[in-house]
Design a protein around this nucleic acid. Structure first.
Lengths: 218, 218, 218, 218
DNA sequence: CATGAATGAGAGTTCATTCAT
DNA sequence: AATGAATGAACTCTCATTCAT
């Protein structure tokens, strides 16, 4: 009845893709305008369906929002965890890989909007914030903390307070991705990762101060 | 608490304070719930006036929002600029003073909500974002950049790319203040500046890597 | 359970019964929730078909409603008219038979919901109300009126105003059936026909007053 | 600018009357079209206000509905209870007065729509149905039952089963009022209380049968 | 025949804004 | 200056109806 490559009917083919198409459209708008200011009309229009269709796939605006946040978490975490195993013998490389990997998988993609969204909406959706904290933040921190601890054990990394160091290390990456989603238009200069990231790695690894040996990375 | 001469009636005394009382009430709610989700009813209630009264002082919700953002900029910038002059002879101390000063004047106060607000709403209020970028971000960056340049000139600070280094340096502070306004409830541990700030200064000044001389701050 | 000859496929067997199965499902829901509050989804679900299938048998929600009301009228009227012929020699027995027969055929069955439905929806469906009035109410009244007139002619029944007496006589039966469909849950006591019906017949036939000379009101 | 009797401003004067004006408009429409089919737009329009104004006085459509039902209960019950005390020496007159009084205070007024409404909506609002049953139905029945019992004690009224007799006696009145709100257009003849009520009283007091010895059914 | 995904008009509800007092 | 009742546009959500499969 139909081309075996295109399989099924257009209707049916799209049907299975709908939830993620809708969530993607929603992500874009939520990030752009915020949850409350996003109208479901617009989400539907951006996804090319009618308003009512949204309700075939999501119970409410709130559940759409939760789906948007939940979506795409798992592949990222999985990727981080596999990196950890692959590189545990070289903690400094592991740390760089985790941080750079986060940038590539999240910071530089559509998903970069999610941290901004969570920052903006955490207090309006406390249970979602708790979920996000447990499933994303804590797991992400654990990976970076693990890398630091391996590095400290092996004498490659200074004896810093690991929990707060993890936050300090993540902050510039998070901030850059958040900043880009919010201020790209009026602050284009600041949003160029090709300048920012090298400086970032240089600084966190070597610090600012001029002293013997600093700056010569292995 | 108030000038005994002018303290005629509570009404009169408060009258002049109204706009800032209202803006303060609004700040709290905008930070908590976001711009769109904040109802003017609530703002009025929190300020102890009726909803109509808001319109005696602000043309619209949007102009109230702009007032909230604008409010409190000047004293902070002025303080930064005076620090700059006072400490230009010791660039490293200047840098620490600017960053720590920002924390004390903004990060640790009610004003910490403003960065979160701007991040959340920048794209809904592009002209306000531009204003904020010019009057706050750029001026703030210029101070920190000035400190770095002085330090580099004098051989105290490594030759980093100044514009991106400024961002990297500010990011952990901004992030902490933003994080505290959003996730304090479910991530209390991460929101303790007394652990975070020392680690922050240690890392940006000395970096992570173990090498001769690192970690011995002057 | 089914004719072994025709029971080819379940599909075919049911096909002919579909309209009345659907109408029956719809009757239940219309009675329970009212016309406007009944969703066609639910009707379809209760009948075990999909929503689209309803439209193979009925043009619209309104035509389904009309079918529900129309359904089951004819057998009841036919039964009443045959009773009339059988018992015209004993008008008092005829009257009792008509009233008790209505109770058995309508009041005590699923069809009892129809009067409630018509009461609730008459003004939303004026033409249907007119149809119902002509085909059901008037014909039913004519039967009871006939019994009264026969009884009066033969001196068995007092000379009452027949048209209004018919209504007064029908009212308690209608009311009981209506009441049971609406208040059975919170007024179970009042909904027991085994107490109500004997009292009803006793009262309409004999009245309340203790005395010979009944009928001469002061 | 305004009549001193009418006092206050139009605005303020109306403000106090608003809830009952709105409830009255709502009663009319709920009775006419049913709860679900009544649009709040229409209610507001009938009351001469905008849709939003409804929400200044009622939390939701449902609470408006409850107010409509609750409204006007108390004066009617009070009137019945005072009648009871005044006429307890003449139970037959008391019975007539209660029944005729119900007709005048409820059956013949706007309030006649309430029984129809409750019949139509009882199952959609079970707690309201329970309230109505307890506060209206039960109290009303208790009055009529009291009259019957007094009459029986004094040998004026036959020894009938009081609870079911009360229902049988009320049914024709309720039915007439319900019928008039639903079928007045297509059944005008049946809705003339001036014919119906005398026949009603005649029948319930004296019954249908011509004979001394009434009450001994075959 | 039967399905159920898709539609879009329309409902209840909210809330920034106005204005008579 | 201050109020708060009133407004109405705009939002989320529902559901009768359609139609490709």
């Amino acid at each position: 009845m139909s081309d075996p490559v295109r399989a099924r009917s257009n209707g049916r083919r799209r049907k299975e893709a709908r939830p993620s198409e809708l969530a993607e459209a929603a992500l874009g708008l939520f990030v752009e305008k915020g949850y409350a200011a996003t109208r479901l009309d617009e989400v539907a229009a951006r996804a090319g369906v009618s308003k009512g269709t949204l309700y075939l796939y999501f119970d409410s605006k709130e559940s759409l929002f939760k789906a948007v946040i939940t979506m795409g978490i798992d592949p990222v975490m999985a990727r981080g965890e596999s990196m950890f195993e692959e590189l545990r013998d070289d903690p400094v490389a592991l740390l760089r890989a985790l941080l750079a990997g986060w940038w590539e998988l999240v910071g530089a993609t559509e998903l970069a909007g999610i941290p901004k969204l969570m920052i903006a909406e955490a207090r309006n959706f406390p249970e979602l914030a708790r979920f996000y904290h447990e499933e994303v933040i804590s797991r992400g921190r654990a990976l970076v903390a693990g890398a630091l601890e391996l590095g400290i054990e092996r004498g490659l990394i200074r004896r810093v307070d690991v929990p707060s160091a993890v936050q300090v290390l993540m902050a510039p990456l998070l901030m850059l991705s958040v900043w880009r989603t919010s201020f790209a238009v009026c602050d284009a200069d600041a949003c160029r990762p090709e300048k920012y990231l090298p400086t970032y790695f240089d600084l966190i690894l070597n610090g600012l101060l001029v002293r013997p040996g600093a700056g010569e990375l292995p």
